[in-house]
Design a protein around this nucleic acid. Structure first.
Length: 494
RNA sequence: GGACAGGUGGCCGAGUGGUUGAAGGCGCACGCCUGGAAAGUGUGUAACGGUGAAAGCCGUUCGAGGGUUCGAAUCCCUCUCUGUCCGCCA
């Protein structure tokens, strides 16, 4: 979320930043925002004058009544009555303008940092040569991870499809254990040598949290949503009530008949919805969205860890805060139809160790490098070949001002694939979450800076181990640093 | 899920319609006292927004949103979160 005051102060910088992101209509957008901002401030000047007069007059009424000056009090009351209507109308206008402005700001992405390379897509990403590690190993006729895993009998996509559909997997035996070992190894490294605090956070969150880190309102299609089953029945009841009161759709006796027939509430809901949608613009998602029982499944623990400090004013002395967590993540992958359909690269559910840092603005760049070091340290200890790129302006995520992607070498794919993404979001998320900090003198200084990174994507790390540590006989060697987490085993084999 | 009780400043806590943005305490900051410190003592100590060169002035905010009223922390409605007990349960 951008600060409208910053846009007011330097609209040119705002426009330039968005244009670097490829937004051709940035100037028009800025003009529109500033027009609304001006309208709001003009309104406030008028409204506040009237409010001040009302407050004064009300005090005078109290004094007049105390002095038994009924005539004076009556005159003042008449004046305030006139103001009242104008004030109420002004307040409604204010709410409307503020909402419009906020809605418009909520869907604008962050401005890229100055040292981010310009470009439209990943072809313009810039290698960070100094961070590259290792060389692709020479493996004769390398297999892909799913070939290895299925041959071991420890990776089962077919049964997962039976239970959950596409983009799910069962891991068994040593591969299941390997996932747990990786999570533990990563957490131990981050807490032990990088001073991160281990967390076990919620994986179901409210709208507000998803707004805070920027997944909502713009990227709803990437997410899974849950509603308590009983709530669906309540929603059906609400539909039914709507028909009763508006006399269209199912009639009360029809609904009662359906209930008497034992028709499930969601069936009533479905039938009602069809009728309902023919007659009104209100939609089912809209009804659900108004329901307090709705949750979202986190697409990354960034959401739970970053929003931990939402609506707080932190002391500068307690910063930086560093959190890490090993959680499942859930992504709809709606825009990825046909991509990475085989194997574990792109799943609806995967596990990941996440890193989140909360810092002051002057520390965030250094923290970004440090976080990337922490993520890379895992790959180095696993002796996995990888490289680092700075994402170009066109490839960065919505909330980021600068992002490093870490790409691990996958022999089976003969390619580098993303295994971590470390972003500095500056104050962008902090403004959405309303998280600020206070300096040593106790003065509130403004939004904190937030950073997040994968340290690492555990599923993809498991893939990388299978492909890089595969042996000619079909077994997989276990990296040295993981052996103690695997009961001393040195390989996974038949 | 049921029944109660609550949500007030960095923290605790008073406050049931009128000069209360909010008593009192703790904490914190500065001063006095002291050889130095503790204790004691005095003063100060919210956020956001508008306006202004600034000092300042004004507005909003007592969980959130509506409402009643000339005037709401205080009354009404809806929602939300927390606590306690009961029920259920990993």
């Amino acid at each position: 979320m951008h600060d409208i005051k910053a846009i007011r102060d330097d609209a040119a910088a705002f426009v330039r930043g968005l244009q670097r992101r490829g937004m051709g209509d940035a100037q028009q957008l800025a003009d529109n925002l500033l027009k609304k901002d001006k309208a709001l401030r003009d309104l406030l000047v008028r409204l506040q004058c009237e409010q001040a007069r009302r407050n004064d007059a009300s005090k005078l009424i109290g004094q007049a009544k105390a002095k038994k000056d009924e005539a004076g009090a009556a005159a003042l009351m008449a004046e305030v009555a006139g103001l009242k209507e104008s004030i109420q109308q002004g307040e409604a206008e204010q709410r409307e303008l503020e909402k419009t402005l906020r809605d418009a700001l909520a869907v604008i992405p962050n401005i890229p940092a100055a040292d981010v390379p310009d470009g439209a897509d990943e072809s313009a990403n810039a290698p960070v040569v100094s961070r590259a590690f290792g060389k692709p190993p020479g493996i004769n006729a390398p297999k892909q991870h799913f070939e290895i895993g299925e041959a071991l009998g420890q990776m089962d996509f077919e049964r997962a499809a039976k239970v959950s559909g596409a983009r799910f997997v069962y891991l068994k035996n040593d591969l299941a254990k390997l996932e747990r070992a990786l999570g533990a190894f990563m957490l131990d490294t981050h807490t032990g040598t990088f001073d991160y605090t281990e967390m076990s956070p919620p994986v179901l969150v409210r709208d507000k949290a998803m707004f805070g880190t920027g997944q909502l309102p713009k990227f709803e299609e990437d997410l899974f949503q849950t509603v308590r089953a009983a709530t669906l029945g309540d929603i059906a009841d609400r539909y039914a009530e709507a028909y009763r009161s508006r006399k269209w759709g199912l009639q009360p006796n029809e609904i009662d008949d359906l209930i008497a027939q034992g028709v499930a509430s969601d069936e009533i809901n479905r039938r009602s919805k069809d009728l309902y949608l023919q007659q009104t613009t209100v939609d089912l998602p809209e009804l659900i969205s108004g329901d307090p029982e709705r949750f979202w499944l986190i697409p990354t623990a960034e959401v739970s860890l970053t929003n931990y400090v939402a609506d707080e004013i932190l002391g500068e002395a307690e910063l930086p805060l560093r959190f890490t967590a090993f959680t499942p993540c859930f992504r709809a992958e709606a825009g990825a139809a046909g991509r990475d359909t085989r194997g574990m690269i792109r799943m609806h559910q995967f596990s990941k160790v996440e890193l989140v840092s909360i810092t002051t603005p002057d520390q965030s760049n250094a923290e970004h490098e440090r976080m990337t070091d922490a993520a890379q340290e895992i790959l180095k200890k696993l002796d996995l070949t990888h490289r680092v790129v700075t994402l170009c302006t066109g490839d960065m995520g919505f909330g980021a001002q600068k992002t490093y992607d870490i790409e691990v070498w996958l022999p089976g794919q003969n390619a580098y694939r993303e295994i971590s993404s470390c972003s500095n979001c500056g104050g962008f998320q902090a403004r959405r979450m309303n998280t600020r900090y206070r300096n040593a003198e106790g003065k509130v200084k403004g939004p904190v800076h937030t950073l997040n990174g994968s340290g690492l994507a555990v599923g993809r790390t498991l893939v990388a181990i299978l492909e890089n540590y595969q042996q000619p006989d079909g077994s997989v060697a276990i990296p040295d640093v993981l052996q103690s987490y695997m009961g001393g085993k040195t390989k996974i084999g038949l």
